[in-house]
Amino acid sequence: MKLRSRDDQDISARTIDHPVILDGITRTYSSKAGKVHALRGVTHTFAPSSFTAVMGPSGSGKSTLLQCAAGLDRPTSGRVRVGGVDLAGLSEVGLTRLRRDTMGFVFQSYNLLPALTAHDNVALPLRLAGAAPGRSTVRQVLARVGLAELHHRRPSELSGGQQQRVSIARALVSRPHVVFADEPTGALDRSTGRQVLELLRSTVDTEGLTVVMVTHDPVAASYADSVLFLEDGQVVGNLVGADGAQIAAHMSELER
């Protein structure tokens, strides 16, 4: 395990200007039933310190878009640049390093390690990167999501909302430049969901993070600065500063 090298810091400097750029990406899966085109040429730049929601009907390619942007999946064609680095040129280890230094992830199923306490789950990304995070660093991040008191609990001893907040703390602990969220409120009730969304909103406003969130909930999307609409693997619209009702109207237009 290596500490952050000079190169990584260079990446950080550039990230601020160009967090995530998608340039004509397509993603085709071949299955027994034939070829499935999940993405058919998507070009988009996620602006720095912006909160973008990605919406679209089921099967429109939202999750594939997110996975390609985060380097979890490799596009069939097109380029993905994160912080000025072309992901295509990176090895598995290079991708892992880039991810742990510049990206955070939040998902519908909280994906916490059941063997570890909340504190250790949050500290894990830093530990994996070879750093020895101080107790206070981790406690601070946990306090940021309102869970300072519950640091010693294991995931099974936390409610769904609390688990999701632990996973947000984990996403924030390595001070990433971009956080990818896939249906982060999908498994939560309305009021816990709101807390999570407000938390994401405030990271953008106060810490200058870039957040890319896939969702199907217009209310959740209304917390974003702009909403990117996908259909059949293509971008079909981009609403800026819309409220829940406008977003819902646009969605039902698409789903008709």
Partner: peptide
């Protein structure tokens, strides 16, 4: 597999 995938997601290298 999911747990290991998660470790990779939060930054573990294949070697780790």
């Amino acid at each position: 597999q999911r747990e290991i995938g998660l470790l990779r997601l939060v930054g573990a290298t294949p070697k780790q």
